[in-house]
Amino acid sequence: MPEFELPTALEAHEPPEARGLARDEVRLLAGSSAGVSHHRFTELPELLRAGDVLVVNTSGTLAASVPVVGVPMRLHFSTLLPDGRWAVEVRGRDLRPRPGRAGVLPLPGRATATLEEPYTRGRLWSATVRAALPVPEYLQRYGQPIRYPYVRRRWPLSAYQTVFANRPGSAEMPSAARPFSERVVTRLVAAGVQFAPLVLHTGVASPEAHERPYPEWFSVPATTARVVNDARAAGGRIIAVGTTAVRALESAAGPEGRVAEREGYTDLVVTRSRGVRVVDGLLTGFHEPRASHLDLLAAVAEPDTLRDCYAEAVRCGYLWHEFGDVNLLLP
């Protein structure tokens, strides 16, 4: 994995629209064994070729942060669990994780969340939520998008949605797809690049914890499996948009790399030692030092390519986090 320090000056504090850019005008750093090159995201169609497939996550972002009544804390709704409970995270005044103790948290609208048992070590809890509305509707009425300290002010939920979002369920935005716009999608299709949708509802990924991924719900439809399999047979490249798309697609792939229709909870952790069976390239944001996402990137790109990309991104002032710039890793 690349070793680097992230200067605070490279944290994106607001959406690109607040910096005077369209969402598709963020910077794009392309890396492959041939080296690195600098672009705007609007140049993506020139970097791909006819027959390539972009695999996109159509999960929509929830307003997953709710205040706890009477105390300076917030509850982050992470993942709906198979037994109907929710994995949740409690955060304190400074918005850092609070391990807390089991108990009942009062929420707006006379709702409650009962913390029952740890879901991950020290951070997430399994909780029973009681509310007058189903949780997604409850969050729409009482919640706000999850916001970490580097984002200095509130932004509406629309700022956290991608153009592909059509199935709400993610605690945090599948942000690699945020730069896509209708005009870029149109140009890609005109250039012969195909799109293959899937869903993975991503949970909260604490910047402080850098913990391993935990199970998340995904769905790979039959049409996407067919598009990917046909493209691979014809020599096309499969390029995942975001680490969530990698995890979902690889969860639906057999040992020989053939993708099948599949849905459910995946606990797959993609690492360099495990490798990838389907994905050839990846469009992704820039990840923090020592983040577990870097293990997944190392399964797609060569170590030298990753090191070169991150060194160049720091040197040239690329921006990190969900409102930042993007990195295209090609074979």
Rank of each mutant, 00 (worst) to 15 (best):
F4G: 03
L10S: 08
A22K: 11
D24V: 09
E25P: 06
V26G: 10
R27Y: 12
S33H: 13
H38N: 14
L44A: 03
R49P: 00
V53K: 01
V55K: 04
S59E: 11
R74N: 15
L75M: 10
S78W: 00
L80K: 04
L80E: 10
R85P: 00
A102T: 15
L107H: 11
G109M: 09
G109I: 10
R110V: 08
R110P: 02
A111R: 10
P118W: 05
A127W: 04
V129F: 01
R130M: 03
P134H: 03
Y142V: 11
G143K: 07
I146N: 07
L157Y: 04
A159Q: 01
A159Y: 01
Q161R: 04
A171V: 06
P174G: 11
P174W: 11
S181Q: 09
R183I: 08
V184S: 05
T186G: 15
R187F: 06
A191E: 06
H201G: 07
S206D: 05
A209D: 11
W217R: 15
S219P: 00
S219Q: 11
T223P: 01
T224E: 09
R226G: 02
D230H: 08
V246K: 05
L249I: 03
S251M: 07
G254F: 00
P255H: 02
A260W: 01
E261K: 05
D267R: 12
L268E: 13
V269F: 15
R272G: 15
V278D: 09
H287V: 02
H293G: 09
D295M: 13
L296Q: 05
L296A: 10
D304R: 15
T305P: 02
C316A: 15
L319F: 10
E322D: 13
G324A: 10
D325N: 10
P331M: 09
P331H: 08
